[in-house]
Every structure is written in structure tokens, then in C-alpha cells.
Design a protein around this nucleic acid. Structure first.
Lengths: 329, 329
DNA sequence: CGCACACCTGAGAGCGCTACCACCACAAAC
DNA sequence: GTTTGTGGTGGTAGCGCTCTCAGGTGTGCG
């Protein structure tokens, strides 16, 4: 392999150097169709010598394939993109896409403005879309041209397959643990209420509480630590006998713990706190956080792989969530 | 705008619908060259009506522009990609690149194997490279064809501009705070020793300690919480009178706090602990973590913008780091 | 010997777009 | 009248690649 002094080698250069036609070189390098051993060797050697790297752009153009996978995050404003959850999603997707010559773009999809989706559907350079935090109206607005190239991380629809953690199972695991620990006055700090995939754990919470004859105590959060702290205090103000808080995310739970500590309330002695996600910091918080796993990277990997492959996928892929019992509950 | 029933509209379709040539349509939509008001109106209307979206791939091909920005993370093995720091970098870059029709790819660049870099240099679909955690050998291996399209987040070189937090200033701010708090036996848990940008805070630590006539106590870490915990315990074993630990990252510091708590050592009463990064969880840990800021998203945004613009940038751009004094030190 | 059928190859069309170039109309300057 | 812009326009050559298609060579078989 020699350093390209002027410009990167093209397929034509390789073909010329190997003494074959461009078609043959393409066949050899592409690994399809027939090619004699001799041709294969000569082309391979020439490609090595010239340091040939296929131009993914040209390939994509002629094949009609896309070069970008768009991660579109719904939300009321662009701050939804500041979420570490989104960071992990994008990073995992970018890792899966790299070997395919596909890059990842991150966009905010304003809630109730599906025009952005239509634009993505008309963009031939987009090979697929990962919908995040999506809602029914957005799902309904998915243009026909995007069918089969768009998946949802979270809520799905008949037309859009979904990949998500089994929210209900995670909630159930945590709540049963709380119940087994003797907690009976369990308040829940939710995620944003418009987010239907997050509502599933709220629904599970309500169902379980009612089934056990326990009071339902809901406070709205937004997955952030700051809001989690305020919500926890609000719960304790409204229902002073609350003995456990189930937070919809680990960040929320960590914020709750900090707020309770600020009030001199012992965790887990006075109030148990449990989260949902099992982020790396859950293990080293004080007290160490009891939570349920949320395999974000695995979910993003599976979702990105699905759109990259283009093969039909089942309408719903649920990833198991298991309890991680630590000290906080 | 009508729903594309068959295939997305091309520039030819728009030109035909507007009754002009493809060249004129391209000029209008591209916003360059001459075009009569009439032509502008007709092309604009036709584009709207057909829901025309330019094909970025074709545009990039003819312009010789890339469509991917590669985030290449150096490290001994692929687990370097699992770092939340990398997640934030990639996510911020993907956000900046999206409006430019550029996608982000994430790759591991094996330490001491610059062949990967050569491949990126020959790949015309790559518009730029963000080198992360890079080392001198890697920087030296940057092929000439990549010059001007590659920047480093961390250590740079004459040929590769760098964007990084001012590690020395951050270290100094934290160490002065520790010193002002009466701490004199300050041990440092470093990052990986081969990582030259991280070494800058080690150097600053050594310089400050020596200048103050204080002992230098170094333990090697790797930015993770788990290793941070072990390293903190190791420091306390080797130097039992240690009264403060300066950790090279917040994760390390959080791990250290957890480990000390496990040994019944009070933070900050017995040992003060300070970190570096100011991650969201630093504010809600127990005790709340004293640290110095590391504007990761801003750095990644600036770096990505630089390669996207293609304009020459100064060899070093240092982002200020300021102390955030909380409870742990 | 003729035919079918493998294997192998190169010519060339075209993906959708940009940008260079030639061209035209008209007005101002010489 | 001729030149010199100046605004506006269309033809068309590619960017680098894939893939169809027509054609070539050899082998097995009736």
C-alpha cells in the first residue's frame, strides 16, 4: 500500500493497474458474480498497492441506498437532545452503522409538527429513521415512503415496529421488591405524561397498587434529577406517610435521594427509593441505588441493525428488565 | 406539497414541472448564480408541490464532499467506546452535523495500529475525523490526505489542531480548593497513563504539590468508577495519612467515595474527594461532588464545526474549566 | 460435429446532481 | 454600427460506482 500522493485511488485506477475492466474489478471487490482466480489476485494486489477504499457515496448513489440514519427525538423543545439517554442511543447506533458506511444524524422532532418526518421520507440519502420518545400523532404521520425504514424506540404502531425495554416488567420487579421489603405507601415519580412508552410503567404501577389494595400516589417528573428531587418532596408533602418512592428513571431517583437527604430523611430507613435504568452511577451512589435494568445500548443496536438490514421485524421487540437490588430499597 | 405516491421527486421532475432546465432549477434551489424572479417563483412552487428534497448523496458525489464524520477513539480495546464521555461527544457531533447532511460514525482506533487512519484518509465519503484519546504515534500517522479534515479532542500536533478543556487549569482550581480547605496529603487517581491529554492534569498536580512542598502520591486509574474505588483504597493503604483524593474524572471520584464509605471513612470529614467533569450526577451524589467543569458538548460542537467548515483553526483551542465547590471537598 | 451450458469478461448505461460553458437578449458605451 | 457588459438560460460532461447485457472461451454431451 503506498501513500496516495495526489488523490485517492478510484476503481478505474485499480482496474487499469490490474489490467482488467472496471466491471471485473467491481465484481472482485464487491465479491459477487464470476471472476477467475487470476483476476481476483491481480485486482486484490492492485487495490492493496494503491490503498484503494471504495467511495461509499458513489456506491450509495447508484444503489439507491442511504448513507444516513436519522435519530429523531420528539419533545416539546430541543432540550430533549440533552438527555444522556439520547447520547447512549446515538452512540450505540453510530457504532453499529460505521461498518456499513452509514453515519448517524441527530434531530429534534417538534411534538405535533410531523413536517420534519415528511422531509426525511423524501430524502434519498436517509436510509432509515429511529424514532425516539415518539407519540401516536407522529407515528400516524410517518409517510408511506418511509415504511420499512423506520422503527421506534419506545411506543410503536402497526406501521412502525418498536424496540423497547419491557417497562411493565421492570416496574413490576421493582414494586414487588418494595412490597416485599414491607413498603406499603409507595409514591411514583413519573416521566413526562405525554410519553406513551413511559406511561406503561405508570399503568403497571397503578394496576399493581390497586391489586394490592394500596393507594396510588402519582407525581409528574421528567426523568431529570432536578425535577426528581422536587417531585419527591412534593410527594412527601402531599402524603407525609409515604414510605417508598418509585422513580421512573435513575436520574430521578438520584435527585430524589439528594432532596430527601437535604430534608434529613433517611434512605432507605425512612423512605426507600428505587429507580429504573441501572446507569453506571447507580452502583456508586450513596446509598447504592436499587433499580431495574434498561439495556439502552442493546436496544439501540437492535433497532439500528433492523433498519440497516431492511428485513421485516416483529411489531414489538421487548427487552427484559431485571431487578438490581442494592441499598436504597 | 403532495404525498409522493411512487418515488421521491428529483431535480429533473422539479425542472420539468416548472418548465425550466435542470440547470436553472439547480441554480434556484442552490441559491447561486442568476435566476429571474419568474424562474425563482416557478421552481420554488414546483419544488414545494412535489415535496422535493435534494439528494445529499448525489450532491456530495459531484462536489467531492464527504457525508460522514468519523469519531475515532483510540484505546487498547473496543471497550473505550463504552465510555459516557464518548457518548456525549458523538451525540453533540451528530447534532451539529445533521443540518449539513452529514452523519457521524463511531470507530475504535486500536492503539498502535494506524492502518485504520490510512483507510479513513482514502475514503472519499469521509468529510472529516474527530480523533479522541489520541496519542503521538497516531497523530504522526495522520496521512497527508487527511490534513485539514482531522482535529483532535485532547492532545494535538502541529498537523492536527486540538480542542480540549484546559486540564491544567481545572486541576489547579481543584487542588487550590483542596489546599485552601487545609488538605495537605493529597493523592491523585489518574486516568490511563498512556493518554497524554490526561497527563497534563497529572503534570499540573505534580508541579503544584512540589511547589507547595507537599508529597506526590499517584495511583493509576482509568476514568471508571470501579477502578476509582480500588485506586482510592490502594492510595489509603500505601499512604494512610492521606486526607484528600483528587480524581481525574467524576466517575472515578464517585467510585472513590463509594469505596471509602464501604470502609467507614467519612467524606469529606476524614478524606476529601474531588473530581473532574461536573457530570449531571455530581450535583446529586452523597455528598455532592466538588469538581471542575469539563464542557464536553461544547468542545465536540466546536471540533465538529471546525471540520465541517473546513476553515483553518488555531492549533490549540482550550476551553476553560471552573471549580464547582460542593460538599465532598 | 453441433449444441447446450457452464465460466468469465468488458462495454456502457445511468444513479441525481453540480458547475462549466456557450449562448441569447438587451442595454449602455464607444 | 460595433463593442462590451450583464442578466438569464440550457446543454452537457462528468463525480465513482454498480449491474445488465452481449459476447467470448472452454467443456461435456447427444
Amino acid at each position: 500500500m503506498e501513500t496516495p500522493t495526489t488523490r485517492p485511488a478510484t476503481l478505474d485506477d485499480v482496474a487499469r493497474a490490474a489490467g482488467v475492466s472496471r466491471a471485473t474489478a467491481s465484481r472482485v471487490l464487491g465479491g459477487y458474480g464470476f471472476a477467475s482466480v487470476d483476476a481476483r489476485d491481480r485486482v486484490g494486489a492492485a487495490a492493496d498497492r494503491l490503498g484503494y477504499v471504495p467511495n461509499t457515496t458513489a456506491r450509495a448513489l447508484v444503489r439507491g441506498a442511504g448513507v444516513r440514519l436519522v435519530v429523531a427525538v420528539s419533545g416539546t423543545d430541543a432540550t430533549v437532545l440533552d438527555d444522556p439517554y439520547v447520547d447512549r442511543l446515538v452512540s450505540a447506533a453510530a457504532r453499529v452503522c460505521a461498518p456499513h458506511g452509514v453515519g448517524v444524524a441527530l434531530e429534534w422532532l417538534p411534538l405535533g409538527a410531523p413536517a420534519g418526518l415528511r422531509r426525511l421520507g423524501g430524502d434519498r440519502s436517509v436510509c432509515g429513521v429511529l424514532l425516539v420518545n415518539t407519540t401516536a400523532p407522529v407515528l400516524d404521520a410517518v409517510p408511506a415512503g418511509l415504511r420499512g425504514r423506520v422503527v421506534s424506540i419506545g411506543t410503536g404502531s402497526p406501521a412502525v415496529p418498536s424496540f423497547d425495554v419491557d417497562n411493565a416488567a421492570g416496574a413490576e420487579a421493582v414494586l414487588r421488591h418494595l412490597h416485599a421489603g414491607g413498603r406499603r405507601r409507595i409514591a411514583m415519580v413519573t416521566g413526562p405524561r405525554w410519553l406513551s412508552c413511559a406511561e406503561r410503567s405508570v399503568t403497571a404501577y397503578q394496576r399493581l397498587m390497586r391489586a394490592a389494595g394500596l393507594p396510588v400516589r402519582l407525581v409528574t417528573g421528567d426523568f431529570t434529577a432536578a425535577r426528581g428531587g422536587r417531585a419527591a418532596l412534593e410527594a412527601l408533602t402531599r402524603w407525609p406517610d409515604t414510605d417508598a418512592i418509585y422513580a421512573a428513571s435513575d436520574a430521578t431517583a438520584l435527585g430524589a435521594i439528594a432532596a430527601l437527604r437535604g430534608r434529613g430523611i433517611g434512605v432507605p430507613h425512612d423512605v426507600a427509593v428505587a429507580g429504573f435504568d441501572d446507569i453506571p452511577y447507580a452502583a456508586v451512589s450513596s446509598p447504592a441505588l436499587t433499580t431495574a435494568t434498561h439495556p439502552v445500548a442493546r436496544i439501540a443496536t437492535a433497532a439500528a441493525t433492523a433498519v440497516l438490514d431492511g428485513r421485516p421485524v416483529p411489531p414489538v421487540t421487548a427487552f427484559p428488565s431485571t431487578l438490581v437490588a442494592r441499598e436504597s430499597a
